[in-house]
Write a protein that binds this DNA or RNA. Structure first.
Lengths: 182, 182
DNA sequence: TCAATCCCGACAAGAACGCTTGGGATTGAG
DNA sequence: CTCAATCCCAAGCGTTCTTGTCGGGATTGA
């Protein structure tokens, strides 16, 4: 609802210190969650989602393109178009989402999961630290593999959405309260 | 030995994408590893370490101060002074080192390990994603807690160093091969 | 006395991030 | 057929962070 135009640049790194996802990661995941809620109910427009989540629409577009190129969402052009998940939420591991959004998860250049990393790493003695970065990378990859989009979209919300898709057409805004912010 | 003055600014983020430690983390860990090798052999000067690892000395100083303030190393001033580990390597979890160097490990502001995070996080519906960030944070914290400085300083190297401290003076460079880059 | 070292604050270049702008192409509805 | 809604895309701009550098102090052993 409120003013995409006044978004007023947030601090560069949303997460302080090490292990910091940027807003790319956050917005992208939020976008995916919204699409997860909408799953099975036709395409959702970015304008809708941007309003619902109070994120700048134009910026969301960029993320949506990335997610599309990664094969995670499909787009429908033209009027009443929008984005949909390419697969059911349970088949979308968050590792894939975040890798698409933020690039390969490599805590250091020495620990890229891509080939040829050992070439880039010919530091002197202390390259023992590789062990550390690799452990961290694997830990993150494991955590991210273990969570699917379905885990972030409570099942009852999905059920309600589906019911709506074949019944009434309005009143789908009041499901927000479900967020148990522990 | 070779030219601290020509270090020529490296690319800003050493680690691409999500989960990127900065050079602060890398240099700091390398520094700690060097101190680990030197453990029990008196204080080591920053000039020595900077030369051995080819890192800018003045920058290393800043990291050393941080590590000292965190109680991880102790300093001896004056001639023949330098830095020493405050504890044996096995008693230094890397989580502590990296937290000191890079701040609290919080993948997002919503998932700080400090109290009051729920105040900062009053996003709309999608705060379900908290689950994700917290999982990632815990995974990283776990991985980092499970590695101590001793794991990065092979015991035989320590033994050799101690022998050197009371004997010969060279031939400690050929231990590189230990990095099993899978 | 002197040189080696730690201590400390300020600042400069450059990259990355966060977002905006401005236009195009494509499609359903009237 | 026209029009509005939507996706598509590239370029650019200001802010903030990192990555160091610089210059000078304080402290101590020889």
């Amino acid at each position: 609802m409120r003013a995409q135009t006044s978004a007023a640049h947030r601090p560069a790194f949303h997460g302080t210190g090490a292990v910091a996802f940027s807003t790319k990661g956050e917005y992208g995941v939020r976008l995916m969650v919204q699409l997860g809620r909408h799953y099975g109910a036709g395409p959702a427009s970015l304008a809708e989602i941007a309003a619902a989540e109070d994120m700048p629409r134009a910026y969301l577009e960029q993320l949506a393109f990335v997610l599309r190129d990664a094969g995670l969402v499909v787009s429908t052009r033209g009027a009443h178009g929008g984005y949909e998940l390419a697969r059911p939420p349970a088949a979308i591991p968050m590792s894939e989402v975040l890798r698409a959004l933020e690039g390969p998860l490599a805590p250091m250049i020495c620990a890229t999961d891509e080939p040829g990393h050992d070439l880039a790493c010919d530091r002197t003695s202390s390259c023992t630290v590789n062990l550390l970065w690799i452990r961290v990378r694997d830990a993150v990859a494991g955590a991210l593999d273990g969570v699917t989009l379905a885990d972030l979209v409570p099942q009852r919300v999905v059920a309600i959405q589906r019911a709506l898709a074949s019944g009434a057409t309005s009143a789908n805004q009041n499901l927000e309260g479900a967020a148990t912010t522990s």
